[in-house]
Structure formats: structure tokens, C-alpha cells
């Protein structure tokens, strides 16, 4: 008996040995800091002096007394609600076009994916700023048609929409996933439907979409979480201010300002945990509603 446990342990030991790098990373770099930040969210930690316990004060202020939280929540939700559907719609449209078996597919696929590779980078955000500036490329183009464009990035009415556009432009990764999903749709279903006289639109609505729903669901969840976490574009385009007049003050950017701009790390930790709760809630909601619209073939 003892011998067999020892033997079994030895078997497990090698497994744990192989898992060690991952486990060390998980406990040391993910779980540890996460727990530390949970603790800090109940303190007035200012990065330099030892944290002092303040109980729920940070959470109370966030939920009842902070006008900038309200501003940043509004901006963030608007960004999520606009960027996710547009981006996915665009990704699906391009995927459908590419799926028609055009020549040079790998090339197009790579080209369309390119913005996603560049997308999170600082360089593209800087470029975006230039392109949409008052005397930028967009307005020079509009000027050919006699249209005088606004200063897109520095006008509070438009600044957020330039960021939405930047996000939509990075449609590559959901597009690749859609494309993979489209490849799974059995051709005979389309043939049968065509014989029954179904139009292209009907085939799309009644075959493609239902079979694609698991993929759509996956993309919605992933992209929503990504959109909630967006930080770099707003940070670069607004120069870290979230301006003009808080028009691009993403929740994550506000969190960053409180933490590193004004040395209120405890408060920022509380902001971060509320973001976790909101993302978890939204994700849970998507899973709950998925019962009603996602079809699994088996």
C-alpha cells in the first residue's frame, strides 16, 4: 500500500515538475499580485509609504461620490457597445468575402490580419493621432471634396469615435476565427437549400448564422472583455489625459491616472476590482443568454 502511494507520488512528481514553470508563474505573477491588490484596495497605499487600512472607504467613494467614475463608465460602455458589434460585423463581412474561394486567399488573409498585429502597438496609436488631427490625412482627403473636417482627435464630440474606428480597423483576429467557422459549414446544406429555392440571403440567415453562433458567441465574449480592458489607444491619442474634457477617459485610463499620476494606488486597486466584477458579470450574462441563441450541432 505504502509502496503504491510512493510510486503514485513519483508519477505525479514528474508531472508537477513539468508544471512547475507554469505554477510558479501563476502563483508568483498572477495570483500573488491579484491578492495583494485586493488587500491594497482596502488601504490608502500611495506607492511610497506603507499602506494604511481604510476599510470600504475607497469603494464607497467610487460608488457614491466620484463624478469621474461616472464619466469614465459612460465612455467605456459607449466604447464597448459601439466597437464590439461594428468590429464583429466587419470581421464577419470580410470573412464571408474571403470564404468565396478567391485566389490568393492566404495573402489577403495575412493583409487583413496585419492591423491586428500592429493594433495594440503604440506606433499605430501615434499614427492614428496624426491621421485624424485637424491638418491630418483624413481632412486633407476631405478637402479635395471641399469638405472642411473637424479636428477629430481633439474635439470632444468626435474623439471617442476615432478610437472606435481604430478598434474596428483591427478586425483581424475575429475575422480569422469567423473564417475557420465558415469552413465548418457543410456544403451540402447550401446545395439542398438552393434546390429548395432559398435565396442567398435566406441561406445566410438560416444556415450560416445558426451554424456560426458558437463562433459568434466566442468572439462576442472575447472582444467584449478586450474592449473593457482597452487602454493603449486612449492613453496615446489623448496623451494620457483622457481628454479633451474626459471624452476618451476610459475606465482603465482613469484607474491609471489615479494610481500613477496622483499616487492613489489603494483607490486604483479598488477601481480595478470593480472592473473585474463588471467584466465577470457581463460575461456571465452572455453565457446565460447564450442558451437562447447559440446552437450546438450535437
Amino acid at each position: 500500500m505504502a509502496k503504491s502511494t510512493a510510486w503514485r507520488w513519483r508519477g505525479h512528481a514528474s508531472a508537477y515538475l513539468f508544471l512547475l514553470p507554469w505554477l510558479a508563474g501563476f502563483f508568483g505573477l498572477t495570483l500573488g499580485p491579484a491578492l495583494a491588490s485586493l488587500y491594497l484596495s482596502f488601504t490608502n497605499y500611495d506607492l511610497m509609504e506603507p499602506p494604511g487600512w481604510v476599510g470600504l472607504a475607497n469603494y464607497v467613494r467610487i460608488l457614491t461620490a466620484d463624478a469621474k467614475v461616472a464619466d469614465s463608465v459612460r465612455v467605456t460602455f459607449l466604447y464597448v457597445v459601439l466597437s464590439v458589434p461594428f468590429k464583429l460585423g466587419f470581421a464577419l463581412a470580410i470573412a464571408l468575402v474571403l470564404n468565396r474561394g478567391i485566389r490568393g486567399l492566404p495573402l489577403y488573409r495575412a493583409l487583413f490580419y496585419l492591423p491586428s498585429l500592429l493594433g495594440a502597438s503604440v506606433a499605430v496609436a501615434v499614427l492614428w493621432r496624426k491621421v485624424f488631427a485637424g491638418d491630418g490625412l483624413v481632412n486633407q482627403f476631405l478637402a479635395w471634396f471641399g469638405i472642411e473636417g473637424a479636428s477629430w482627435v481633439s474635439d470632444p464630440d468626435y474623439a471617442l469615435y476615432t478610437l472606435v474606428l481604430l478598434s474596428v480597423w483591427q478586425f483581424g483576429s475575429p475575422m480569422i476565427i469567423f473564417l475557420a467557422g465558415l469552413r465548418q459549414v457543410p456544403g451540402e446544406l447550401y446545395e439542398a437549400a438552393s434546390l429548395d429555392g432559398a435565396s442567398a440571403l435566406q441561406r445566410f440567415r438560416n444556415i450560416t448564422i445558426p451554424i456560426l453562433t458558437p463562433v459568434i458567441f466566442f468572439n462576442v465574449v472575447v472582444q467584449t472583455i478586450e474592449a473593457f480592458k482597452a487602454f493603449t489607444p486612449a492613453f496615446i491619442v489623448s496623451g494620457g489625459t483622457g481628454g479633451p474634457i474626459n471624452a476618451t477617459l476610459f475606465y482603465t485610463l482613469y484607474l491609471y491616472q489615479e494610481a500613477f499620476g496622483y499616487l492613489r494606488m489603494g483607490y486604483a486597486a479598488a477601481l480595478a476590482w470593480l472592473l473585474v466584477v463588471v467584466i465577470a458579470a457581463v460575461t456571465a450574462l452572455s453565457f446565460l443568454t447564450s442558451k437562447f441563441w447559440v446552437h450546438y450541432e450535437d
Binding site: 485637424g134 473637424a150 479636428s151 481633439s154 474635439d155 481628454g243 479633451p244
Partner: peptide, 10 residues
């Protein structure tokens, strides 16, 4: 005007 001033990053 304000939209021009907004280009100033200090």
C-alpha cells in the same frame, strides 16, 4: 481655438 489647443501636450 480649443480644438487646436488640445494638440498641446505640455
Amino acid at each position: 481655438p480649443p480644438d487646436v489647443q488640445a494638440l498641446d501636450k505640455g
